[in-house]
Computed example of a mutant assay.
Amino acid sequence: MISPDIIQKAHQRIRPYIRRTPVMLSDGDFCNHDTPVSLKLELFQHTGSFKPRGAFNNLLSRTVPEAGVTAASGGNHGAAVAFAAARLGHKARIFVPEVSSAAKQAKIRNAGAELVVAGAHYADALALCEAYQQESGALAVHAYDAAETIAGQGTVAVEWLDQAGPLDTLLVAVGGGGLISGILAACGNQCQVVAVEPEGSACLSRAMAAGKPVNVENNSVAIDSLGAKSIGCLPYQICRDLLSASVTVPDAAIIAAQKAIWNKFQIVTEAGGATALAALMHGTYCPKPGERVGVLLCGANADLQHLL
């Protein structure tokens, strides 16, 4: 298992390469909550999401061959791997599905990586990436189902709890499970962690009900960041043992949360980045009186014409 000590070591390893993103207290009225909510603004991380944490931890703790690195992604992970590879002097080939947003594809290209857009869904891009890795010998950096990725993503919790002080509950959006499993491993018993998924893309909820990872259909506005077909095997094991609760939210609530963040703070979030907040605003997660709640805003890579 991935211990808090492993995540602390990952944090020390990647600190020179990542941003220490800010935490902001929002008044409770914003979320129909009686106390201020701690918002971790991880959408201000390099490339606009939490993903560089896992990308840098992979590239700094593993041997990168001459063939460079490769990754499959809905967009954010690919942008992060491309950014980390460029920073560390490696070439990269990134595979994304056709549902990947233009904003995310542009970030991958701008980082200097070779971009391959193919397949209808993330699973299709992953199959192409795996074939390329076998052919080329490049280092494959998995978006969520790898210990190095999970440990890197867990460093966001190390920062957050240091900045915000004691919190009772953290709300975290879930795609393939790398972020929430890293946060669970980092937090231990310091607070409860609640998983939030779109109703149309809920691979963790389905896995918890089935007692194992299962394939799901994906149909959500957040599909380009929370569109994994199945929860990762390692994230599932960590969530099975440590997760406090799992909830789902409708697309309408996600869109409302995106617009609320813009209207109140003039901060742009992508749909996946606003999903955790949607659980509070929609009433899917109802805190107890005085409960100290933290919400992770994890991604900013939205196509603005769909938001404003």
Score class of each variant (00 low, 15 high):
4 P>C: 03
6 I>D: 15
7 I>Q: 02
8 Q>C: 07
10 A>Y: 11
10 A>Q: 10
13 R>M: 11
21 T>V: 09
21 T>C: 07
23 V>A: 13
25 L>E: 12
25 L>P: 01
29 D>Y: 09
31 C>Q: 02
38 S>T: 03
42 E>N: 10
45 Q>P: 13
50 F>W: 10
51 K>Q: 12
55 A>T: 03
56 F>P: 10
56 F>C: 07
60 L>W: 03
60 L>E: 02
68 G>D: 02
73 S>Q: 06
74 G>S: 11
75 G>P: 11
80 A>V: 04
84 A>I: 13
85 A>K: 08
85 A>P: 07
86 A>S: 15
87 R>Q: 15
93 R>V: 15
98 E>G: 01
100 S>C: 15
101 S>N: 06
102 A>K: 12
104 K>Q: 05
109 R>W: 04
112 G>V: 10
115 L>T: 05
115 L>K: 05
115 L>N: 04
118 A>I: 00
122 Y>N: 07
123 A>S: 14
124 D>F: 10
128 L>S: 06
136 S>Y: 03
151 A>M: 13
152 G>K: 05
152 G>W: 03
152 G>C: 03
156 V>C: 14
157 A>D: 01
169 T>F: 03
169 T>P: 00
177 G>Q: 06
182 G>F: 01
185 A>M: 08
188 G>I: 06
189 N>R: 15
192 Q>R: 15
198 P>V: 00
199 E>K: 05
202 A>H: 12
208 M>T: 00
209 A>M: 06
211 G>V: 00
211 G>K: 03
213 P>T: 06
217 E>H: 09
218 N>S: 13
228 A>T: 08
229 K>A: 14
229 K>N: 14
232 G>I: 01
233 C>I: 08
233 C>K: 08
238 I>F: 01
239 C>G: 01
255 I>D: 09
257 A>H: 08
261 I>K: 02
264 K>D: 14
266 Q>N: 12
267 I>A: 07
271 A>N: 01
277 L>G: 11
278 A>W: 11
278 A>G: 12
282 H>G: 12
285 Y>V: 06
294 G>F: 05
294 G>P: 07
297 L>S: 05
300 A>L: 01
300 A>G: 15
300 A>S: 15
